[in-house]
Amino acid sequence: MKIKLSFRLNGESITLATEPLKRLLDLLRDQLELTGTKEGCGEGECGACAVLIDDRLMNACLVPAAVLEGKNIITIEGYRTTAQFKILKSCFEKAGAVQCGFCTPGMLLAAEALLRQKPKPTAEEVRAGLAGNLCRCTGYNMIVEAVLLAAKEGEGLWSTPVGL
C-alpha cells in the first residue's frame, strides 16, 4: 500500500508516493538520496539521524512517512544553506568539534533545536540538549564549547526563522 504525501523539505514542496510506515530515514536516504542524515542505531538512541520537523528535533528512524503530511522538514542538506549553520560551522571549526563526522549532521540539528529553545544556554543546558546525540570520538567537550561559542557569536540569530 502506498499513500500520496505532501510536505516541505528543506524549503521545497515535495509530493511523493510511499509506504505509510516507511521510516523518514529511509525516505530521505533511499528515495530522496539525501544521505547527510546518518543511521547509527535505528532505534532512536544515537541521534545520528536527527532532523528538524516543524522546528522540533526528531530522530528520522522513528518517524513513519504517514505522519509527515503538511510538515516542514529540515535536514543537513537544507540546514547547511542557512545563516545559523554558518555560525555553528565556524564555531565547530574553532572548537575542533568534528572528528569522524558521523554524528555531526545530527549534532548540528540538535544544536540548532537547543539554541532555538535557549539562545543563551549554560554549559549544562547545552549538554542536556545534546543528550540524545551520541558521539564516540570527542567526549563532547569540544562540541559543548562550540555550541556555547555559537550562542555568543550568533546572538540574536536564533530568534529568527531558519529561512527554509
Binding site: R29, T35, T37, I76, F92, E93, G101
Partner: peptide, 23 residues
C-alpha cells in the same frame, strides 16, 4: 598550532560519503 582539518567541510556539511551513502 592548530589548523582547520582537511576533512572538516565535507563532514560538517553532511557531504562526506560513507559506505552506506553510496547509491
Amino acid at each position: 598550532e592548530a589548523i582547520k582539518r582537511f576533512d572538516f567541510d565535507e563532514k560538517i556539511e553532511g557531504r562526506a560519503q560513507y559506505a552506506a551513502d553510496l547509491k
